[in-house]
Design a binder for these strands. Structure first.
Lengths: 168, 168
DNA sequence: TCCGTACCCTTGGAAGTCCTAGTATATTGC
DNA sequence: GCAATATACTAGGACTTCCAAGGGTACGGA
């Protein structure tokens, strides 16, 4: 999409902020922008690894979640809550995964409102392969030093908790 | 979209990774997932602030970039490179901003292939208001401690540089 | 019993991202 | 000068996300 820029655009932005008298918020602005950009880079790496397997990140996340579910099945609203995405996004992902034969919908035994989603054998196999690929190609080569990983987990964990992600 | 979960889903995922014998990549996996989620939270905050102004984040970024351009105008390919998004995304954003009367397209004086984009007076005013709102409501209340901001900037800066974002 | 409220999922629409292709203009090499 | 290559933008399609609205089901109080 683009070759390396001669200058860091986020450092430039920070400089612009300071030049306009917003020095008090320039650093957090830069940090937030850097998080946005980092997410973009990581997502691109992940999608590159998943593409040959016919998966997108959204669909992989759902497969992975199901593969760890004790009972092997999850209500859609549970999946929505755990993945922290809108229910319609889950509907969308399940539609496509179901069409690809990787998951199946079934009615909840006692609650007629609820739909359960479950991995097919094929879905379970693909989830394993996708996780192995991501472990090898992305998570195992993140480029973050061990110390930095721990620090990120602490800082971002505090942030998410303060944002109301979890109460734990 | 959801009330706080009783447990941190990312910590759960890390636990699942360790339980399956992928302990060597569990921490980076968790850190990467945390970056994804943090971006999602921050983007939602930003969009909430921009919505009353009739802007999305993508359009705001373009307005802000133009407002800092010395000449007041930028070729679309330059904007694409600096914002680090696909050229078609810039076309999309410019289409909508132009329709809203916030930017204008004009032909490049010497290169017939390139299109220049420029802020209208209205666009310049709105960019100022939007930046003020973001500074007050998002960047000024990021929730990150000053030390953590500096650390984030270093770690993510190293990462982006290693990923080939800039050569500086 | 039955009505209202709460909850679960789906549909349709708007927005963003990227990709692939296509058109038009520059530039380079022969 | 002209053909071949490179560059700039745009069109159409796939995907994800969210919101708003609607239909179905469950449950609790009158």
């Amino acid at each position: 999409m683009g070759s390396p820029l001669p200058r860091d655009p986020i450092a430039e932005a920070r400089h612009n902020w300071e030049r306009h008298g917003w020095g008090d918020v320039a650093a957090p602005m830069a940090a937030i922008t850097a998080i946005m950009r980092t997410q973009q880079i990581l997502l691109a790496r992940i999608e590159t690894v998943l593409k040959p397997l016919g998966l997108t990140f959204a669909r992989y996340e759902l497969l992975a979640l199901l593969s760890f579910a004790r009972s092997g099945a999850l209500p859609m609203n549970k999946a929505s809550a755990l993945l922290q995405v809108h229910p319609t996004s889950v509907t969308n992902a399940v539609d496509r995964l179901e069409h690809a034969g990787l998951v199946a919908r079934s009615p909840h035994p006692t609650d007629g409102r609820t739909t359960l989603i479950e991995l097919t054998a094929e879905g379970r196999t693909l989830a394993k392969r996708a996780t192995a690929a991501l472990n090898a190609e992305v998570f195992g080569k993140s480029g973050f030093a061990d110390d930095d990983v721990e620090h990120l987990l602490r800082v971002l964990g505090d942030f998410r908790k303060a944002a109301g992600d979890f109460t734990d």
